[in-house]
Structure formats: structure tokens, C-alpha cells
Amino acid sequence: MGTRYQAHRAIGATRITPDKWHAARDAVKDVVDRFGALVESADPQAMATADWSVMDTAAHVAAVAWLNTAAVASDDAPLPMPGIREHIATATVDTIGTSLNSALLHAYTERDPGKVVGTLRTSIDEILRLTAAADPTRTLSWLGGSRIPLAGLVAHLTNELLLHGRDIARAVDLPWHLPDEYAALFFELFLIEIARNGAGHLLDDDRRVHQGRIAVEFRSDYTSPVTMVLDTGDVWIEEPSRDNDVRVHFKPATLNLVLFHRVPRVRAALTGSLRVWGRRPWLLAPFLRKVRLP
């Protein structure tokens, strides 16, 4: 990424408000209860993904939450698992699913359902305790030299619980609800804020970069309208304007499933959960080749 991120200078208006901060804290408490009950009722050996069992998946989420207890304390706090810091520092979107996640599962070896859920609950309780009186806009060092606010870290944890809870529930044929209002918090407090505060080298890759500006406006019934701009590799946030190239209207839960490769874009479009138009809608494809999630 460019020097825009290396300077860690927030661009565009923050979406963090006191109401959304309280909502993010309530959401993670709600979803961790549902997730814990799901894990403890599921077959631990069932395959939740092509590579992870139910307990591998739950252990991954617990390890992420445990690491985040150090992140909210300070950028220099010792990590609870050895050998992870170097993977965090060098992470890109393309290596999170291989290098970092593999290192996490190797470092966190517990697979007993009760103990894994216990670690998860204790870690989230500790995060909420440590941040009870904190400024939710305070930024933290995150993966690949990126910066996220406290509110974004909490919203990201909720999204981890929701997405991986869905993986587990589908594996054992149990219902699982992804509330749009919770997914909207991930979009506004994490995705938009990481673009505001600096993505570091998270989006770095060897792909050919689209030359020139692409402005994509995002709207939903649960979020404030916002424009994300990609310009020859740099990404930042602006307010919507008439010269936006692409306009996207989305249901937040569906957008998250699309971005994390759980639902194809075509299926989301056919159901009306993702609508794309604008003066140059074809530019959404090169935009998403660069602005992407693991």
C-alpha cells in the first residue's frame, strides 16, 4: 500500500458513535452465548469446512479472541501464544488463511469443547472489561501493519463468531441466524474504519493494479451511505457524491457472506440482497480484486 497508510492518517468521517459502540458490545455478548451453546451441542469431529472440524473452527475463534485480549491492552503487550507476532506483522489478506491461521491452530492446541468455549467466553469478557471506559475510536495495531479502532475489533470478533457459527451450524444441520444489524456493525466499524485508518500492507499482492480512480458507494437500510475509493492501489473513505462510478445496495449479512466467499455474488444478486448499478458498474470487479477479504 502507499504512504497514505504508512502515515496512519484517518481519512473520511468516522462511523463510530456512542450508540454503535454500545450496540457492538451488546452484539458480541449475544453471539458468543449462541456460539458457545452451538459448539457444546455439535459433533466435535464433524467437518465445518473443507479443512477444519467443528472443534478446529471453534479453536480458531477462541484463539483470535484470546489474542485480542493483548491487542486491547496495548500494542506492546505480550501475546498469549508464542510465535504468532511475526505472522501478524507480515500478514496479507492472501496469507491469513494459510500462514497465520495455521500458526494459530498450531499454537492453540486445546480441542475440548468445554475448555475451548471457556477460553472464548473468558477472553471476550476480558476484552469488554478492559474497554468498558475506553474511547472506542482509539486505534490499535492489527494485522499487516493496519490500524483498527477498538469498536472495529469488537465488531470483527462478532463477525468471526457469526461466520464460523454458520459454518458449524451447517455442518451439523442446525439453524443459525446472522442479524443484518450485527453485520452492519462489521461493515461500518471494521471495514470502513480500517480503510479510514490504514490497511498497512494487508491488501498487497502481485496482481495487476487497476490504474486510476474507482469510487464505490455503499448503501443499505442499516448503514449510513459511504464511498470507498480505490486509486492505483490506495484505498480511502469519502462521502457519497454524484461522480461515484459504482453504487451498491446491500443487505449487510449477505454482503459479509459474499465478501468471505460463503455465497456467490450471482446468487446474492438474484435474491435482491445485492444490487449494483451506476455510471461504470463494471469497475466493481477490479475494485473487489484489490479490496478483498480472506
Rank of each mutant, 00 (worst) to 15 (best):
V266R: 08
I88R: 11
A7C: 12
G114P: 01
V61F: 09
F35L: 05
D173P: 03
T57H: 08
A62M: 03
T158V: 09
A59D: 00
M81F: 15
L150M: 08
G36I: 04
D112F: 02
D19Q: 15
W176I: 12
V248W: 13
L293P: 11
M47K: 15
L259A: 12
S224T: 06
A91F: 02
E40H: 04
M55C: 00
S273L: 05
E110F: 05
T14V: 03
I168T: 07
L157I: 06
H8Y: 11
T49S: 15
A37E: 15
I168P: 07
A7S: 13
A42L: 09
L185A: 03
G36P: 09
A183C: 13
N68S: 13
V32D: 13
H156R: 15
R279E: 10
I237E: 03
G152Y: 00
V229E: 06
L255G: 00
P18K: 11
A70G: 08
L140D: 10
W236F: 14
V226P: 00
P225A: 06
D231F: 03
D206Y: 13
L185I: 04
Q6W: 14
Y182E: 14
T49R: 07
N256P: 05
L120T: 02
N159P: 06
R207T: 09
E110A: 10
P44F: 11
Y108G: 03
S220M: 06
I88Q: 14
L67K: 13
G114T: 11
D51P: 04
P286N: 07
A65M: 02
I84A: 03
V209G: 07
A46L: 10
D19S: 05
V229A: 08
R247A: 06
R196H: 08
I148G: 10
R280S: 10
D19I: 05
A103Y: 11
S141Q: 12
K115C: 14
A91M: 05
T254W: 09
T49F: 02
V54L: 01
L270V: 10
M1W: 01
A134W: 01
S241E: 14
E86G: 08
A215N: 05
F260E: 00
R265D: 05
A23M: 07
L130P: 09
R280C: 01
V31N: 09
T17W: 00
L150W: 05
W142V: 13
D43Y: 13
V117I: 07
P264Y: 03
R121M: 05
D125M: 06
K20Y: 02
R34A: 14
